[in-house]
Design a protein around this nucleic acid. Sequence first.
DNA 1: CTGAATGGGTTCGCATTTGAAATCCAGACT
DNA 2: AGTCTGGATTTCAAATGCGAACCCATTCAG
Lengths: 154, 154
Amino acid sequence: MTQIPLARRSPVQPDACNLAKAIDVVGDRWTLLILRAALYGVRRFDDFQAELACPRTVLSGRLKKLVEDGLLTKRTYKSPGKRSRPEYVLSPMGLSLRPILIGLTQWGDAWLGQGETPPISFTKAGSKSAIRAAFVDIEGREVRPDQIRPVLRG
Amino acid sequence: MTQIPLARRSPVQPDACNLAKAIDVVGDRWTLLILRAALYGVRRFDDFQAELACPRTVLSGRLKKLVEDGLLTKRTYKSPGKRSRPEYVLSPMGLSLRPILIGLTQWGDAWLGQGETPPISFTKAGSKSAIRAAFVDIEGREVRPDQIRPVLRG
DNA sequence: CTGAATGGGTTCGCATTTGAAATCCAGACT
DNA sequence: AGTCTGGATTTCAAATGCGAACCCATTCAG
């Protein structure tokens, strides 16, 4: 197992680090739960609310921030015979978080699932064997975790 | 671009979902920032504090929770001529979050980096070309995002 | 033309969490 | 004995969170 050498500070200041910026955008419980629901296709205010069981104030605030940050797009839908309503759909920026949330799901399956079969898993279309989050080189071949090396700019 | 079909509810109840459980464990700004630092090798209370600039109360609480949840291991170190101190090192459970945080870093590079060269990137040992987070099938070959299919248990 | 129903919020009051600073504590060094 | 230092807890104001109630516009039913 990779042992990480002791460091007094991280090599990149948090405020210059895109990971820290990403954490500012998605590093919040409700925000992550909203994105989880959105990736499953939930789009409407009341559906989010039923799904998350969170205060409407919080939901309203988080949706607004997600739209401002560009992860969700607010647009209008209209079912026939009903008035038009806003719905919140994932933008490309939001959609591209999918691998990360699937990775986190699988991490949860491995460490928090108490040995039970995961309720949901992922396969390649047309295949039955499971896929997993990993790293690949430029040619799409897997790179094992102990082969990963950080490189600082400069 | 994959368009996700409308759903009123997600296919897995949040409290049965390992993603939701994972979010309960790591879905917090300070927790994520602590893990970020830990993955770069930070281990000691004051080093975390200098790195994060967060209240010591909050840091103390988060470290305790991370130990309880099993992501960090509290152990003792002793520099010669100094008294022994606790340090917080990543457990295997914590280490296995690395791909996810690297993935999130690259997501931030892509969407929040304002076109600048990322301050840190990752390569395969002995190679110069960058690696990226992706999905692989059982044989370690990449699976494109639009090929991913969720499968419910049952 | 009312009146209720529905979806999508906002307002309000209170409880919890957070932040910043001060304090505490144990062991090593002088 | 006194001081320094890393690792925390205490204190209290300020921010954020929660839940419930309320508001608003539209549509449908009578």
